[in-house]
């Protein structure tokens, strides 16, 4: 007598595959709908209606004077070009430019602190190596706690751009360390180092001119990931931000909480496009999207 085929043989694979596709749909469908809705006039029925309009985008980007335009993106002069007798003022969207700048500052700090420690863990054996590794790849505290701590420790500095940059760099440092470390681990570090040393290079020179350039792709993807995560950092910014231009995540929150659905959709879609651009960049340097363990 033939044994009856087991349940898992008959259904296992389909159930597992179905779970995957259902979850992907759950994760991605609202993203697609949001982008679609950002071009709609209204969304009151099952699906958004009144296509195609750019009013939401214009309102969110601060290009149109509408009700609630105080929530729109501000425009501020980036620099002035003296052209002949006239001056040409180059305007940039304030929140966007502000966040891009803050996140770049955070990435610079991350490069300086993250690349060396990743190399130390990947290349050398030393007592306490496991703990150094754990401290460098696990976030120390979440944004809210760090925000409270910054307010206490640096009351004057915490709401400034510099305070935000330092905070972002600590919060996102683990991502840089992980990206660079996985690159280092795929390299023959000891051979590289020893060859360079035997050719007469000092150790600092070996590190800076042989090791670091070879780990380029890991460093670049770490920088891109850290940049995107810092540009989107909400929790820390929400606690410490006091006045002036808002970071991008706070700009998103003020739309999500206050604006009409389609306008909020436009604000969130703008953010999606930034992340898509970043993901495409990441794939160019050879990684599959945000393929770094987060926590």
């Amino acid at each position: 007598m033939r044994p009856s085929p087991s349940l898992s043989r008959r259904f296992g694979r389909s159930v597992v595959t179905l779970t995957l596709f259902a979850t992907v749909a759950f994760l991605i469908a609202p993203i697609v709908l949001t982008v679609v809705a950002s071009f709609a006039t209204s969304w009151t029925g099952v699906l958004p209606s009144g296509f195609v309009t750019f009013e939401n985008w214009r309102a969110v980007l601060g290009l149109a004077d509408t009700i609630g335009s105080q929530r729109s993106m501000g425009w501020s002069p980036l620099f002035r070009l003296p052209l002949g007798g006239e001056t040409l003022t180059v305007l940039v969207p304030a929140e966007l430019a502000f966040s891009i700048g803050l996140a770049l500052g955070g990435v610079l700090i991350n490069l300086v602190v993250g690349v060396p420690i990743a190399y130390a863990v990947a290349r050398y054996e030393f007592p306490g190596r496991e703990w150094v590794n754990a401290v460098s790849v696990l976030p120390l505290v979440p944004g809210v706690i760090l925000g409270v701590a910054f307010l206490r420790a640096y009351p004057d500095l915490s709401a400034t751009s510099f305070g935000l940059i330092v905070g972002y760099s600590l919060l996102k440092a683990p991502f840089m360390v992980m990206a660079v470390q996985s690159e280092f681990e795929s390299m023959p570090l000891q051979q590289l180092e020893e060859s360079a040393r035997s050719l007469g290079a000092s150790w600092p020179r070996t590190f800076l001119t042989v090791i670091v350039p070879n780990a380029r792709s890991g460093i670049v993807s770490g920088a891109i990931i850290c940049w995107a995560l810092a540009a989107a950092e909400f929790n820390f910014s929400y606690i410490v931000w006091a006045k002036g231009t808002q970071p991008l995540a706070l700009f998103l929150q003020r739309h999500i909480s206050n604006s009409s659905f389609t306008k909020a959709a436009a604000a969130v879609s703008m953010f999606f496009f930034i992340i898509v651009a970043v993901t495409v960049l990441l794939q160019r340097v050879g990684r599959r999207g945000f393929d770094i363990r987060g926590s």
Binding site: I256, T279, F290
Partner: peptide, 20 residues
């Protein structure tokens, strides 16, 4: 790529996705 994409979304955007 699709499964990893939401990693980069802050909590406020995740909440908006649930509203959608």
């Amino acid at each position: 790529t699709l499964v990893s994409f939401p990693i980069s979304l802050p909590g406020i955007v995740a909440a908006f996705m649930i509203l959608v």
